[in-house]
Design a protein around this nucleic acid. Structure first.
Lengths: 121, 121
DNA sequence: CATCGTTATATATTGAAAAACATAGCGCTA
DNA sequence: TAGCGCTATGTTTTTCAATATATAACGATG
């Protein structure tokens, strides 16, 4: 017995949408923001440039990474200071696995949302 | 081929969590907040008391309701001013259907999250 | 017709999160 | 040993949403 929810709403397009993240002890540490940041660090080799590319302050990026690293057995972002380029950062194999996992998770969520949205079409 | 994501993370409990809402044109108008508000209005017969019970300001409650009503073919909350009790509010049959729909949606989402969380146990 | 509790609405205040800014340290290079 | 660009960290400023506050209108009632 399906409820015709759609009939209660005005003409127009409606969707079920949402957001998803990983948390520990109620504290979220892994979602779309950190994922994109990891990807950009991989691209640019620098937290500073990755943050800039996302329009995020360096401090926020650093805090995100620091927090993320604190949840892993091994760090997801490895940094170095000094040197010819002044230092830089790269992501670990573990980070790549997290990104891959998140991609799959997000895809499953997308399907869930699409399925739910189809109920209101 | 399952990724053993769990092994990348420290000892402790981890969960996939998220939130869900209905939106139209990118604007969200129906989620956990409005649902609870509707339920409390049904209980108390008053927006003011419902908001208070949720620790929400009257203005926010009113804005939420006003916005919600604007999405419906018929209003979800019907209000009256003046009279012996000074006025009051009640929810429509349509609102009850929205609540029922949301309950089911939330349950399906809960199962999705539980299933996803089980991957990290 | 004054009182009551509520809806309806506008404006002021507050508080928390983000951004912006500042500064020190690092290690290679010239 | 000075300079470069980045990491690391603390402090100040800004922004923006939520709350608080204020006021009018409403309609039954005594």
């Amino acid at each position: 017995m399906e409820e015709p929810i759609r009939n209660l709403l005005k003409e127009g397009t409606f969707d079920v949408n949402g957001s998803l993240w990983l948390e520990s002890g109620g504290k979220r540490f892994f979602g779309p923001g950190p994922v994109e940041l990891l990807e950009r660090i991989a691209e640019t080799g620098s937290i500073k440039q990755a943050a800039k590319a996302m329009g995020m302050s360096y401090k926020k990026a650093w805090d995100l990474i620091n927090n993320l690293n604190s949840m892993g057995v091994r760090p997801f972002v490895v940094t170095s200071t000094g040197g010819e380029k002044g230092g830089g950062s790269s992501i670990s194999e573990e980070a790549r696995q997290m990104i891959a996992y998140h991609r799959q998770l997000r895809e499953r969520f997308r399907q869930f949302l699409e399925q739910e949205s189809s109920h209101l079409k």
